[in-house]
């Protein structure tokens, strides 16, 4: 089977004008505008297979939303080629929208003033969903997302988490093979996030729905997707699975150890050889970060237990937040 999404050399440029500040600047803006060209997305290529769940991450303004908007048909690209589920999104938008579900975490897709169930019924007409299918899916979603209590509440009275669950259900009523989520867990508490992740996994498992989600919360990615795409300044920096990213990009591992008692403290200096430095966490807890290339965990541990009396010892990988932070700051993968 061909990939469900194929993006080749996707480029999107914006022309914005620079707003000058202050009274004089505002007067100047009135007559002369200075234009800047911004490359929001710059020759991006990737493809996504049917049934994948892919996390798309990047710092603010990296080009995530622009990519999503092109993939959903809202924006047309300046250059490049996109085929999604057999459609060119921006050319065949109206047909294409029947095959996708979209949730923007920042903005609801539902009608503000009317009850959730009424919004759903409008969507039923809009997407021409047959009555039995509609009933069935509504039941399933109400069950999985626990929507029953507030189906009759106007959207504006819902909490953020409740609204997001309704938005998710709404985006899937027409059973699209493709689901785009732009920051679906933004502003949600831990329980609400968990519920949404469980739901996405369930849908992906039972319906084979392909999911592309952007997020700032890396635990979303760890929980949901095996594959991760990192974009920065309009270019893809990394495309691969999470383990691969850790293997390739994690620079250090760390060992945390707990000393048996205070008598061990003076001996700490003895293990600080060959570029290994102990960091103090508290009086009896210390941390050693070491480069994966130069030291093996085994060697480091051996040195610790041979030199010191420790009560306990933990080996940890570099957290992916740290890896990603480094990528954002450096603007490249290396």
């Amino acid at each position: 089977m061909p990939p469900i999404i194929e993006v080749q050399g996707l480029t999107k440029e914006f022309r914005t004008f620079r707003r000058r500040e202050g009274v004089l600047g505002a007067l100047q803006n009135l007559f002369v505008r200075e234009y800047l060209t911004v490359h929001a997305v710059d020759h991006v290529s990737f493809s996504i297979e049917r049934g994948e769940m892919v996390g798309y991450i990047g710092a603010n303004g990296a080009g995530k939303s622009t990519t999503i908007k092109v993939l959903t048909g809202i924006l047309s690209p300046t250059g490049g080629r996109v085929i999604s589920n057999g459609f060119v999104p921006y050319r065949e938008r109206r047909h294409y929208t029947k095959h996708i579900g979209v949730v923007f975490g920042q903005r609801t897709q539902l009608w503000w003033d009317i009850a959730v169930i009424e919004s759903f019924k409008l969507l039923k007409e809009i997407y021409e969903i047959p009555e039995p299918d509609f009933r069935k899916r509504l039941d399933v979603f109400s069950e999985l997302l626990n929507l029953k209590e507030y189906l009759h509440t106007p959207v504006r009275k819902l909490s953020l988490g409740e609204r997001m669950r309704c938005d998710l259900a709404a985006s899937l009523l027409h059973n699209p093979p493709l689901l785009f989520l732009d920051e679906p867990t933004i502003g949600l508490d831990v329980v609400a996030k968990e519920r949404i992740r469980e739901f996405l996994k369930e849908i992906n498992r039972t319906e084979g729905t392909t999911v592309l989600l952007t997020t700032h919360d890396l635990s979303d990615i760890e929980e949901l997707s095996r594959r991760i795409l990192i974009i920065d300044k309009g270019r893809i920096l990394f495309d691969g699975d999470l383990e691969q990213m850790k293997n390739r990009l994690a620079q250090y591992n760390q060992v945390k150890f707990f000393l048996k008692d205070r008598t061990q403290i003076p001996r700490l200096a003895q293990i600080e050889t060959d570029g290994i430095v102990c960091q103090r966490v508290d009086e009896l807890t210390y941390l050693i970060r070491f480069d994966r290339e130069h030291h093996s965990s085994a060697a480091v541990i051996r040195q610790i237990v041979n030199t010191l009396e420790v009560r306990d010892l933990l080996v940890e990988e570099e957290p992916i937040e740290e890896i990603v932070k480094r990528i954002y700051l450096k603007g490249e993968v290396a």
Binding site: R19, G22, V23, A26, L27, N29, L30
Partner: peptide, 12 residues
């Protein structure tokens, strides 16, 4: 007043 002034300039 100044803020009002600058704001209106934006909507030319």
């Amino acid at each position: 007043a100044r803020v009002g002034f600058v704001n209106t300039l934006a909507y030319r």
